[in-house]
Design a protein around this nucleic acid. Structure first.
Length: 377
RNA sequence: UCCCCGAUAGCUCAAUGGUAGAGCGAGCGGCUGUUAACCGCUAGGUUCCUGGUUCGAGUCCAGGUCGGGGAGCCA
């Protein structure tokens, strides 16, 4: 140890319990505390395990770009990347900002997902994944959202939705098992101080097969539960997305185990998800091969799908959703020049850490959280 | 962005509209084979900001800022 605390009167970290809220305000000093230290080691261990899981199975890590010119998924607000002088913006004749004079010669943003990019490498290398930072400019003020977070997105060729679900289940179980084996000290700490019963919860996930069921059946179960007196704030109706309370009822009350919900109504899912045959799983309307993995205590932790490989169907979906087809020219090319069925999913790294540690606030499991009005350190 | 709650000493929190306190921490001294120990003394405050009501505001009112919980969006 070098040096002394120059003024003990003002040194904020004391030999006593501090609130996590307070420690967030001293993010440059909080790594010296036991909780943040444990979170940081667990984060590292999980990151290593993620790479090992994929590497051992022949996946190739693809570094997708952080700066992108396409709002690929249409998912969420984007952070703009620009070198234009904000005080003196170049204008086109009709008064709009002239982005042709910007650094990239067009509008550019921070990525919201590496998925569309990683699909291009999936078409060549079969088993690939991304693991890197992702950005959402949404004004989300919750304990589960960050403006900058890390995401894991595997993509596998010659695979359908069930292959995807199997990969997701093996992935989650591998990570939990690896973490319990390599960090028993930190995990005992979390079990004792952060969430009583954490180890039991994780072992239960490890030992229980994930329950797969169609969205349509999930809706039926929820409506039946309502008939028996279960109260939900939001209505349960086929064709609407399930609310957090519905997802948590299924995984925490009804099944008491991880649940993979599959085959959602097409109108609530993204354009690139593969259209199912009409009536799949007895659905009253058209569905797509999408899945959400729900776990007790967190709710949705993984979202994935089989991708639409048929160009004519893909084009119809792009039109239906009012998207601008020319923006997706290279994504469509993947179908024009030979393609294979493929599938993948996305997992928020910090949400995984919450799930594995019992920590409550996502801002405590990333070293320097970025959120609305928060970028101090 | 919406709903609810909050902001007072370094930290965690008290304070019927009437002199701002405690515990912990800190400094000094004492005691003690201590383990988040004990005793005494001392220092430490623009009560988040702006405005308003009032003889008088930490307290009541309005607006704002920031934080927490929940929701939406989603990962």
């Amino acid at each position: 140890m070098v040096g002394w605390v120059e003024d003990p009167e003002t040194y904020p970290i004391q030999p006593k319990a501090h609130s996590l809220e307070f420690l967030r305000e001293v993010a440059h000093l909080r790594p010296r505390t036991n909780v943040i230290g444990a979170c940081t080691r667990v984060r590292h261990t999980l990151a290593m395990a993620i790479h090992r899981f994929f590497h051992e199975r022949g996946f190739v890590w693809v570094n997708t770009p952080i700066i992108t010119a396409s709002d690929a998924e249409g998912a969420g607000e984007l952070f703009r990347v620009s070198t234009l002088d904000l005080a003196n913006l170049p204008r086109t004749p009709d008064g709009k900002v002239d982005f042709s004079q910007d650094f990239f010669g067009k509008e550019a943003f921070l990525t919201v997902s590496g998925q569309l990019n990683v699909e291009t490498y999936c078409q060549a290398l079969s088993k690939v994944y991304t693991f890197g930072p992702t950005f959402r400019a949404e004004n989300s003020n919750t304990s589960r959202h960050l403006a900058e977070f890390w995401m894991i997105e595997p993509e596998i060729a010659f695979a359908d939705l069930h292959d995807d679900a199997t990969l997701a289940e093996e992935f989650i179980k591998f990570l939990i098992d690896d973490l319990l084996t390599r960090r028993p000290d930190d995990m005992a700490f979390f079990d004792q101080r952060i969430e009583k019963g954490l180890l039991e919860r994780l072992r239960h996930v490890l030992e229980t097969p994930f329950r797969r069921l169609p969205y349509t059946e999930g809706v039926a179960i929820l409506r039946e539960a309502q008939g028996k007196g279960a109260k939900f704030e939001f209505p349960v109706e086929w064709g609407k997305d399930l609310q957090s309370e519905h997802e948590r009822y299924l995984t925490e009350q009804h099944f008491r185990q991880p649940v993979v919900l599959m085959n959602y109504p097409k109108q609530i899912k993204a354009f690139y998800m593969r259209l199912n045959d009409s009536g799949t799983d007895g659905a009253p309307g058209d569905t797509v091969a999408a899945m959400d993995v729900l776990v007790p205590g967190i709710g949705e932790i993984i979202g994935g799908s089989q991708r639409e490989e048929r160009l004519d169907v893909l084009d119809r979906r792009i039109d239906e959703m009012g998207l601008h087809k020319p923006d997706y020219w290279w994504y469509r090319d993947l179908r024009r020049y030979g393609t294979v069925p493929h599938a993948g999913f996305g997992l928020g790294f910090e949400r995984l850490i919450l799930f594995c540690t019992g920590m409550q606030n996502i801002r405590d499991v990333i070293p320097f959280p970025r959120a609305p009005k928060q970028a101090e350190f």
